[in-house]
Design a protein around this nucleic acid. Sequence first.
DNA 1: TGTGCAAATGATAACCATTCTCATTCTCAT
DNA 2: ATGAGAATGAGAATGGTTATCATTTGCACA
Lengths: 141, 141
Amino acid sequence: MHQPKDLQSAGLKATLPRLKVLSLFETSKERHLSAEDIYNILHSSGEDVSLATVYRVLTQFEHAGLLMRHHFESGKSVFELNHGEHHDHIVCLQCDHVEEFYDAAIEARQKKIAAEYGFTIHEHSLYIYADCTKPNCPNKR
Amino acid sequence: MHQPKDLQSAGLKATLPRLKVLSLFETSKERHLSAEDIYNILHSSGEDVSLATVYRVLTQFEHAGLLMRHHFESGKSVFELNHGEHHDHIVCLQCDHVEEFYDAAIEARQKKIAAEYGFTIHEHSLYIYADCTKPNCPNKR
DNA sequence: TGTGCAAATGATAACCATTCTCATTCTCAT
DNA sequence: ATGAGAATGAGAATGGTTATCATTTGCACA
Ligand SMILES: [Mn+2]
Ligand SMILES: [Mn+2]
Ligand SMILES: [Zn+2]
Ligand SMILES: [Zn+2]
């Protein structure tokens, strides 16, 4: 699964909880996970990690650049592996299905707008909230 | 200041707390206010409204279409008068200064992207987090 | 390969924004 | 003016997250 190297090169000791959380992100079919998601998934497979540690590890991984944090409207932070390429999200309001996209035109316009207003961009968040068309989505129609 | 008509046409009784909150939005120089902001401003001018009522009224105004709610990274909801025209925001990470913008190209791209992925857009949120160049901003340079 | 100590963890209390509860007060149609 | 129902205030409760601190663990070094 993991090389302790992954963590040590990030300046983090290779502890069991950290290995488990990182492994979960690498094997889960859902890219975007909340602290509670992770806590529940680990516990349901007998891998007990305290909720406090899950929160701590997520924040550490975020600072180390291993994970990215997102603030969807759900109110809870959602994390995903940082693969180094920025992207934005379309979130289904009915089933929480998330699609990722990158649009060079939107990125360029943002840079231009910030410059016009005299701002230096740190980051941005663009979330499109919508209804998806997945067959199993509760958008009953 | 206000006509009770404003509220009644929105299906809301013209109560004192509601009149005060609406008046505050119309007279404040800062368009974007949190529940705590409103609570503090009202109290510092001797207009006591309970915090629970501030929260209730803000949510009612949002549902009535009088206010719009935003989720900045601060973690707390921020509200502004709904003037009917959608816009997005640039938020200074140092001084919380907010600029509003509307970009037709960005809006058009979002519609197109959502359609490509088979989503029907409900709404979207675009926040650019940046450093501003206000003279009083703690961007010491 | 064992030891020591700093760092990490677990359990739980605390925190903060927000919502709920319910007894009291207010609004407004009559 | 009155009364029924809606709104308010005070504070308890909630949900997500962080802080505290005693105990356990990783790992550099002997
Ligand atoms: Mn993503
Ligand atoms: Mn605005
Ligand atoms: Zn869906
Ligand atoms: Zn600033």
